[in-house]
Protein backbone atom coordinates (compact mmCIF):
# COMPACT_ATOMS: atom_id res chain seq x y z
CA UNK A 1 0.00 0.00 0.00
CA UNK A 2 1.38 3.31 -1.04
CA UNK A 3 0.69 6.54 -2.83
CA UNK A 4 -1.23 6.16 -6.09
CA UNK A 5 -0.04 7.69 -9.36
CA UNK A 6 -2.55 10.27 -10.49
CA UNK A 7 -4.46 10.85 -13.73
CA UNK A 8 -5.43 14.45 -14.34
CA UNK A 9 -7.77 15.46 -17.18
CA UNK A 10 -7.13 19.01 -18.36
CA UNK A 11 -9.88 21.36 -19.58
CA UNK A 12 -9.15 24.49 -21.58
CA UNK A 13 -11.71 27.11 -20.61
CA UNK A 14 -12.49 30.21 -22.65
CA UNK A 15 -15.13 32.63 -21.45
CA UNK A 16 -16.77 30.02 -19.25
CA UNK A 17 -16.90 27.21 -21.80
CA UNK A 18 -14.62 24.27 -22.44
CA UNK A 19 -12.89 24.56 -25.80
CA UNK A 20 -10.42 22.43 -27.72
CA UNK A 21 -12.32 19.60 -29.00
CA UNK A 22 -14.78 17.54 -27.21
CA UNK A 23 -16.18 15.34 -29.97
CA UNK A 24 -19.45 16.21 -31.67
CA UNK A 25 -19.45 19.92 -30.87
CA UNK A 26 -18.25 23.10 -32.43
CA UNK A 27 -14.66 23.76 -31.40
CA UNK A 28 -15.43 27.16 -29.91
CA UNK A 29 -18.11 25.83 -27.64
CA UNK A 30 -17.33 22.34 -26.54
CA UNK A 31 -19.22 22.10 -23.34
CA UNK A 32 -20.11 23.15 -19.87
CA UNK A 33 -17.10 22.86 -17.55
CA UNK A 34 -19.26 21.80 -14.61
CA UNK A 35 -20.83 18.92 -16.52
CA UNK A 36 -17.50 17.80 -17.95
CA UNK A 37 -15.78 17.99 -14.56
CA UNK A 38 -18.58 15.93 -13.00
CA UNK A 39 -18.21 13.30 -15.69
CA UNK A 40 -14.46 12.98 -15.09
CA UNK A 41 -15.05 12.82 -11.33
CA UNK A 42 -17.44 9.90 -11.84
CA UNK A 43 -14.86 8.17 -14.04
CA UNK A 44 -12.37 8.37 -11.19
CA UNK A 45 -10.18 11.35 -12.13
CA UNK A 46 -7.73 12.06 -9.32
CA UNK A 47 -7.70 15.79 -9.92
CA UNK A 48 -8.93 18.22 -12.56
CA UNK A 49 -6.92 21.05 -14.08
CA UNK A 50 -8.55 24.06 -15.69
CA UNK A 51 -6.49 26.14 -18.04
CA UNK A 52 -8.01 29.58 -18.37
CA UNK A 53 -7.22 30.77 -21.89
CA UNK A 54 -9.44 33.81 -21.50
CA UNK A 55 -7.91 37.10 -22.56
CA UNK A 56 -9.88 39.87 -20.86
CA UNK A 57 -10.40 40.80 -17.23
CA UNK A 58 -14.16 40.67 -17.58
CA UNK A 59 -14.02 37.13 -18.87
CA UNK A 60 -11.67 36.21 -16.07
CA UNK A 61 -14.48 36.90 -13.60
CA UNK A 62 -16.36 34.19 -15.46
CA UNK A 63 -13.57 31.75 -14.64
CA UNK A 64 -13.97 32.50 -10.95
CA UNK A 65 -17.66 31.57 -11.23
CA UNK A 66 -16.80 28.38 -13.09
CA UNK A 67 -14.46 27.36 -10.27
CA UNK A 68 -17.13 28.19 -7.68
CA UNK A 69 -19.71 26.09 -9.51
CA UNK A 70 -17.40 23.12 -9.98
CA UNK A 71 -16.12 23.27 -6.39
CA UNK A 72 -19.62 23.06 -4.97
CA UNK A 73 -20.34 19.85 -6.87
CA UNK A 74 -17.04 18.07 -7.45
CA UNK A 75 -15.06 17.04 -4.37
CA UNK A 76 -11.63 16.25 -5.74
CA UNK A 77 -8.62 18.60 -6.05
CA UNK A 78 -8.98 21.40 -8.59
CA UNK A 79 -6.07 23.28 -10.14
CA UNK A 80 -6.45 26.51 -12.11
CA UNK A 81 -3.79 27.84 -14.46
CA UNK A 82 -3.58 30.62 -17.01
CA UNK A 83 -3.24 34.30 -16.21
CA UNK A 84 -2.13 33.89 -12.60
CA UNK A 85 0.06 36.98 -12.21
CA UNK A 86 -0.28 38.32 -8.67
CA UNK A 87 -1.16 37.25 -5.14
CA UNK A 88 -4.67 38.62 -5.59
CA UNK A 89 -5.22 36.30 -8.60
CA UNK A 90 -4.24 33.35 -6.41
CA UNK A 91 -6.40 34.46 -3.49
CA UNK A 92 -9.45 34.81 -5.76
CA UNK A 93 -9.04 31.33 -7.21
CA UNK A 94 -8.46 29.69 -3.82
CA UNK A 95 -11.45 31.50 -2.35
CA UNK A 96 -13.54 30.33 -5.28
CA UNK A 97 -12.70 26.73 -4.40
CA UNK A 98 -9.50 25.93 -6.29
CA UNK A 99 -6.96 23.89 -4.32
CA UNK A 100 -3.92 24.82 -6.37
CA UNK A 101 -2.95 27.38 -8.95
CA UNK A 102 -0.39 26.89 -11.65
CA UNK A 103 2.00 29.72 -12.42
CA UNK A 104 3.77 29.88 -15.76
CA UNK A 105 4.87 33.10 -17.44
CA UNK A 106 4.61 35.20 -14.27
CA UNK A 107 7.39 33.04 -12.83
CA UNK A 108 9.60 33.83 -15.81
CA UNK A 109 8.94 37.57 -15.56
CA UNK A 110 9.66 37.46 -11.81
CA UNK A 111 10.89 34.22 -10.18
CA UNK A 112 10.48 35.92 -6.79
CA UNK A 113 6.72 35.73 -7.33
CA UNK A 114 6.88 31.95 -6.84
CA UNK A 115 8.55 32.37 -3.47
CA UNK A 116 6.12 35.10 -2.46
CA UNK A 117 3.17 32.91 -3.45
CA UNK A 118 4.51 29.91 -1.51
CA UNK A 119 5.25 32.01 1.56
CA UNK A 120 1.76 33.48 1.47
CA UNK A 121 -0.40 30.47 0.62
CA UNK A 122 1.83 27.47 1.26
CA UNK A 123 3.80 25.32 -1.17
CA UNK A 124 0.95 22.81 -1.30
CA UNK A 125 -1.10 25.06 -3.57
CA UNK A 126 1.61 26.39 -5.88
CA UNK A 127 2.28 24.46 -9.08
CA UNK A 128 4.85 25.83 -11.49
CA UNK A 129 4.10 25.04 -15.13
CA UNK A 130 7.09 24.69 -17.44
CA UNK A 131 6.73 24.62 -21.23
CA UNK A 132 9.92 23.17 -22.67
CA UNK A 133 11.28 22.48 -26.14
CA UNK A 134 14.33 20.49 -27.09
CA UNK A 135 16.92 22.86 -28.53
CA UNK A 136 19.97 20.60 -28.90
CA UNK A 137 20.81 19.36 -32.39
CA UNK A 138 21.31 15.68 -33.16
CA UNK A 139 24.72 14.61 -31.83
CA UNK A 140 24.82 17.36 -29.21
CA UNK A 141 24.16 16.79 -25.51
CA UNK A 142 20.42 16.97 -24.79
CA UNK A 143 19.22 20.40 -23.87
CA UNK A 144 15.75 21.84 -23.37
CA UNK A 145 14.70 25.46 -23.07
CA UNK A 146 11.66 27.21 -21.72
CA UNK A 147 9.32 28.72 -24.29
CA UNK A 148 6.42 31.08 -23.72
CA UNK A 149 3.48 32.31 -25.78
CA UNK A 150 2.36 28.84 -26.75
CA UNK A 151 5.86 27.79 -27.77
CA UNK A 152 6.56 30.74 -30.08
CA UNK A 153 8.87 32.76 -27.87
CA UNK A 154 12.17 31.42 -26.60
CA UNK A 155 13.55 32.57 -23.29
CA UNK A 156 17.03 31.03 -23.34
CA UNK A 157 16.37 29.49 -19.92
CA UNK A 158 17.52 25.91 -19.43
CA UNK A 159 14.45 23.84 -18.51
CA UNK A 160 16.18 21.46 -16.11
CA UNK A 161 17.98 24.20 -14.20
CA UNK A 162 14.73 26.15 -14.09
CA UNK A 163 12.85 23.18 -12.63
CA UNK A 164 15.43 22.91 -9.84
CA UNK A 165 15.28 26.63 -9.20
CA UNK A 166 11.49 26.51 -8.89
CA UNK A 167 11.80 23.72 -6.33
CA UNK A 168 14.26 25.83 -4.34
CA UNK A 169 11.83 28.77 -4.39
CA UNK A 170 9.20 26.57 -2.77
CA UNK A 171 6.99 25.21 -5.57
CA UNK A 172 4.95 22.25 -4.33
CA UNK A 173 4.72 20.57 -7.70
CA UNK A 174 5.89 20.96 -11.32
CA UNK A 175 3.78 20.58 -14.46
CA UNK A 176 6.15 19.81 -17.31
CA UNK A 177 4.81 20.16 -20.86
CA UNK A 178 6.86 19.18 -23.86
CA UNK A 179 6.02 21.74 -26.53
CA UNK A 180 7.53 19.45 -29.18
CA UNK A 181 5.02 16.76 -28.33
CA UNK A 182 1.96 18.79 -27.39
CA UNK A 183 -0.88 17.89 -29.76
CA UNK A 184 1.16 15.27 -31.64
CA UNK A 185 -0.24 12.19 -29.86
CA UNK A 186 3.26 10.67 -30.04
CA UNK A 187 3.77 10.36 -26.28
CA UNK A 188 5.54 12.38 -23.59
CA UNK A 189 9.13 13.50 -24.03
CA UNK A 190 10.31 10.79 -21.61
CA UNK A 191 13.92 11.92 -21.63
CA UNK A 192 12.93 15.41 -20.53
CA UNK A 193 10.64 14.02 -17.81
CA UNK A 194 13.33 11.66 -16.55
CA UNK A 195 16.00 14.36 -16.44
CA UNK A 196 13.73 16.50 -14.28
CA UNK A 197 12.14 13.85 -12.05
CA UNK A 198 15.50 12.39 -11.07
CA UNK A 199 16.74 15.82 -9.95
CA UNK A 200 13.81 17.18 -7.96
CA UNK A 201 12.22 16.01 -4.74
CA UNK A 202 8.77 17.48 -5.44
CA UNK A 203 6.13 15.67 -7.51
CA UNK A 204 6.17 16.14 -11.29
CA UNK A 205 3.12 16.04 -13.58
CA UNK A 206 3.96 14.96 -17.13
CA UNK A 207 2.07 16.65 -19.96
CA UNK A 208 2.10 17.03 -23.72
CA UNK A 209 1.69 14.39 -26.39
CA UNK A 210 -0.52 11.67 -24.94
CA UNK A 211 -2.15 9.65 -27.73
CA UNK A 212 -2.80 6.31 -26.10
CA UNK A 213 -2.85 4.57 -22.74
CA UNK A 214 0.66 3.15 -23.06
CA UNK A 215 1.93 6.73 -23.16
CA UNK A 216 0.49 7.27 -19.68
CA UNK A 217 2.20 4.12 -18.41
CA UNK A 218 5.50 5.22 -19.94
CA UNK A 219 5.24 8.66 -18.33
CA UNK A 220 5.19 7.02 -14.92
CA UNK A 221 7.52 4.08 -15.49
CA UNK A 222 10.14 5.67 -17.73
CA UNK A 223 9.57 9.35 -17.11
CA UNK A 224 9.32 8.98 -13.32
CA UNK A 225 6.22 11.22 -13.13
CA UNK A 226 3.93 11.16 -10.09
CA UNK A 227 0.98 12.19 -12.23
CA UNK A 228 0.03 12.30 -15.89
CA UNK A 229 -2.08 14.97 -17.51
CA UNK A 230 -4.03 14.55 -20.72
CA UNK A 231 -6.78 16.33 -22.58
CA UNK A 232 -7.80 15.05 -25.95
CA UNK A 233 -7.74 11.29 -25.32
CA UNK A 234 -10.41 11.82 -22.68
CA UNK A 235 -12.34 14.65 -24.35
CA UNK A 236 -12.82 12.76 -27.59
CA UNK A 237 -14.20 9.80 -25.72
CA UNK A 238 -11.43 7.52 -27.00
CA UNK A 239 -10.77 6.35 -23.45
CA UNK A 240 -12.32 6.91 -20.06
CA UNK A 241 -10.21 7.76 -17.04
CA UNK A 242 -11.27 4.41 -15.61
CA UNK A 243 -9.85 2.57 -18.63
CA UNK A 244 -6.63 4.51 -18.31
CA UNK A 245 -6.29 3.48 -14.68
CA UNK A 246 -6.99 -0.15 -15.46
CA UNK A 247 -4.26 -0.07 -18.10
CA UNK A 248 -1.81 1.41 -15.62
CA UNK A 249 -2.73 -1.10 -12.94
CA UNK A 250 -2.31 -3.97 -15.39
CA UNK A 251 1.32 -2.90 -15.76
CA UNK A 252 1.96 -2.79 -12.04
CA UNK A 253 1.33 0.89 -11.35
CA UNK A 254 -0.54 1.71 -8.16
CA UNK A 255 -3.71 3.67 -8.93
CA UNK A 256 -6.92 4.63 -7.13
CA UNK A 257 -9.67 2.44 -8.59
Amino acid sequence: MSLAKRIIPCLDVDNGRVVKGVQFVDIRDAGDPVEIAKRYDLQGADEITFLDITATAHERDTMVHVVEEVASQVFIPLTVGGGIRCLEDIRRMLNAGADKVSINSAAIVNPGFVKEACDTFGSQCIVVAIDAKKVSRPGEADRWEIFTHGGRKETGIDAIEWAQQMETLGAGELLITSMDRDGTKSGFDLQLMHEITRRVKIPVIASGGVGNLQHLVDGVKQGGAEAVLAASIFHFGEYTVQEAKEAMQAQGIEVRL
Binding site: M1, S2, L3, A4, K5, R6, D46, S123, Q124, G172, E173, K201, I202, P203, E226, A227, R256
Partner: peptide
Protein backbone atom coordinates in the same frame (compact mmCIF):
# COMPACT_ATOMS: atom_id res chain seq x y z
CA UNK B 1 10.23 9.53 -1.95
CA UNK B 2 8.57 12.66 -3.20
CA UNK B 3 7.89 15.26 -0.50
CA UNK B 4 5.30 16.74 0.01
CA UNK B 5 3.32 13.53 0.29
CA UNK B 6 0.78 14.61 -2.33
CA UNK B 7 -1.98 12.48 -3.77
CA UNK B 8 -4.26 9.57 -2.97
CA UNK B 9 -3.07 7.14 -0.34
CA UNK B 10 -4.74 4.49 1.78
CA UNK B 11 -5.82 4.84 5.38
CA UNK B 12 -5.76 1.65 7.38
Amino acid sequence: LKIPHMGWNQIH
